[in-house]
Design a protein around this nucleic acid. Structure first.
Lengths: 181, 181
DNA sequence: TCAATCATGTCCGAAAACCGCGAGCGGCGC
DNA sequence: GCGCCGCTCGCGGTTTTCGGACATGATTGA
């Protein structure tokens, strides 16, 4: 297994992006959580050969667009992942959550057909190898609390706020800003 | 991972041969031990895509020559394998044992630089995915007993006898046959 | 001579731990 | 009463850990 690595800046700090030979995203994580990424990589792909990318991937451009405000840009990115059946089912359903909205772990559990597996959904979420693009940050507690996030809860809050902000029409956005003052 | 599968007859029963896209042998086992091969395959390569070969491989020809009496034909076959470092070291040393001779597990352990790991050598031998070509059958107990063989001890005995028979000059062969009577 | 012991690397199965949850319940302050 | 808070417990899937089992052989002690 050969993977290409590129690093990119973002409002949330440096990101590490791994793509395969077809340009499909295999992993994305925050640079200061690199050990976590290494662990998942080893778990899913054995010991893949990781080498620096010589050209910027399409995914990198889409991520930049996302941070610039085009939150639907994520939907175009091709992803693939190894992992158990249940995990892959969860990760697949994650991508169907529209940007700007959130759902609860319990609801997601229902969507994968295991209504009582909400906690397992949390665990699967926590081992998602492709942050942001596979939007595990859009899943929150049934009570509205953010619960956890592999990159730190602060980043989860930022991402949710960013997506709400960019989704909102301009008029409401102004109201929102007033309310914040 | 894509592998090509072909079956061939032999004096020891049907064999299953798996080669990769470059024609390199990745697995060879007796047809009645197919579950074992499946297990090793899954262990080393995940779940590879196995499809029937459309042309006979070079390895198949070499194997036929081997059974016909040209026991050095095995040396030409290209092989590759996954597995732990220790196992690969053992399997590599196996190929350096000349056809017609045998060594002990302890001697093989010395050759891989772990003089006391003779038992581990036995285990590595037992998980050799490429029977006959990687000649694990040439390793026997220090006491001369055959010990075990994944395909059954009977086949191990046959292979050793076959190689000795074919190695032996014609004169000795006649003596041997007389002695056997 | 023979049995008991220990060294070695890997795999397998069972069991336990772990977790980014959530429902239910009792206590508390209003 | 009513609503919020915090605790407890059970949920389900994955990962880690641990104890054996092996294609042996050198050594030790009875």
């Amino acid at each position: 297994m050969r993977l290409f690595c590129e690093k990119l800046a973002s409002p949330l700090g440096e990101l590490i992006l791994l793509t395969d030979e077809a340009g499909t995203v295999r992993a994305l994580d925050f640079a200061n959580y690199e050990t976590r990424m290494q662990r998942l990589l080893a778990l899913h792909y054995g010991r893949p050969l990781v080498q620096p990318a010589h050209t910027a991937s399409q995914a990198q451009g889409a991520l930049e667009a996302y941070f610039a405000g085009d939150i639907r840009a994520l939907d175009m990115i091709e992803t693939a992942n190894a992992g158990r059946m249940f995990q892959r089912a969860v990760w697949q359903k994650l991508r169907e959550i529209p940007a700007g909205s959130t759902i609860s772990y319990a609801t997601l559990a229902q969507r994968v057909g295991r209504p009582r597996a909400s906690r397992a959904v949390g665990a699967a979420n926590g081992s998602n190898p492709i942050a942001i693009i596979v939007p595990c940050h859009r899943v929150i507690s049934a009570s509205g609390a953010l619960c956890g996030y592999s990159g730190g809860v602060g980043r989860k809050a930022w991402l949710i706020a960013h997506e709400r902000r960019c989704l909102m029409p301009l008029g409401e956005k102004a109201d929102q800003m007033e309310a914040a003052l």
